[in-house]
């Protein structure tokens, strides 16, 4: 039993890596634009399907799909940005409806192009087991966990050291003050969208290489990313990582101890529990309460 639980914890942590990448993208865009991109999960899924196409048509490892995924997903995200930017009145409410509409378009476009069948990788190299002591994982899980840690370190470095990263943080915390300091907020918003879609591309390829994908999964991913940002408290990067690991572990434990059908229910209960007990999240600053 103990071994099973340890294994669940391990798998959950590995899964948490990709979850963190998705949630960070959502949180970045919310920070600069105060817009929740409800199509974010669909962008991740788009990257996953590009990985599937590259693998099945060229017969290569899905990793080689990353450049193409980056290109297409970034282009799609830039398009989303310009559409959101066109909204003139009541942006908070209308941006939700707009990105919801884009999510519907993407889900159905994915279904039209790739059909509703469930897809998974055929790469033998990725599916090979890696055994560390009593713990077991697929090679792809381990590889992409390391990749997501590297990306998160890169993101942390970018946000704290580079000019644009600082601009993103400045616009997130005080838009008007940032403007006075010579930061162009619209350019910064666009940059945050692009960085979010870079993270989404890697997460999408990761999801395809160790899991199964289907067109309706994008919606689930958006919900998961949101649950993580609530767990974390908006605007906290270490919080997002902890929230993502927490969600991954909760799901893995539910699958091991109860049933895989209850996986989403467990995440939701965790979410409601945090909302009831700590409405500002585990690491968030005060002030979300109205």
């Amino acid at each position: 039993m103990l071994e099973l639980i340890l294994q669940a914890l391990f798998s959950g942590v590995l899964q948490g890596g990709s979850y963190a990448l998705i949630a960070l993208g959502l949180a970045l865009v919310f920070g600069t634009m105060k817009v929740i991109n409800l199509a974010h999960g669909e962008l991740v899924l788009l990257a996953a399907y590009i990985a599937y196409t590259v693998e099945s048509s060229l017969g290569v490892n899905p990793v080689f799909a990353i450049p193409l995924a980056l290109l297409i997903v970034c282009a799609a995200a830039v398009l989303v940005y310009f559409l959101v930017d066109l909204i003139r009145q009541d942006r908070e409410l209308n941006s939700l409806l707009l990105t919801y509409g884009i999510a519907i378009i993407l889900t159905n476009a994915i279904q039209l192009i790739w059909s509703a069948d469930i897809r998974s990788t055929g790469s033998a190299w990725f599916q090979e087991p890696v055994v560390i002591g009593p713990l077991y994982s697929m090679r792809s899980e381990l590889v992409f966990f390391v990749v997501s840690l590297a990306l998160m370190t890169g993101l942390w470095w970018w946000l704290s050291r580079s000019w644009y990263g600082r601009a993103v943080r400045a616009v997130s915390s005080q838009r008007d003050a940032a403007k006075l300091m010579g930061v162009n907020p619209r350019k910064t918003e666009l940059v945050s969208f692009i960085v979010a879609s870079i993270l989404a591309s890697f997460a999408g390829v990761a999801l395809f290489s160790y899991g199964v994908i289907q067109p309706s999964y994008g919606h689930v991913l958006t919900v998961k990313a949101f649950i993580i940002t609530v767990l974390a408290g908006m605007g906290s990067i270490p919080g997002v990582l902890v929230g993502a690991l927490l969600l991954g572990v909760t799901e893995a434990l539910t699958v091991t101890l109860a049933s895989s059908a209850l996986q989403e229910l467990a995440g939701m209960c965790l979410f409601l529990l945090v909302l009831f007990v700590m409405p500002n999240g585990l690491f968030g600053a005060a002030g979300r309460r109205g």
Binding site: K34, I36, E92, V223, F226, V230, F271, R288, R289, G290
Partner: peptide, 13 residues
């Protein structure tokens, strides 16, 4: 009690 888009997202979930 939460401000902003939280209601929309929570009910989606």
């Amino acid at each position: 009690r939460l401000r902003g888009p939280y209601f929309a997202l929570a009910i989606l979930a």
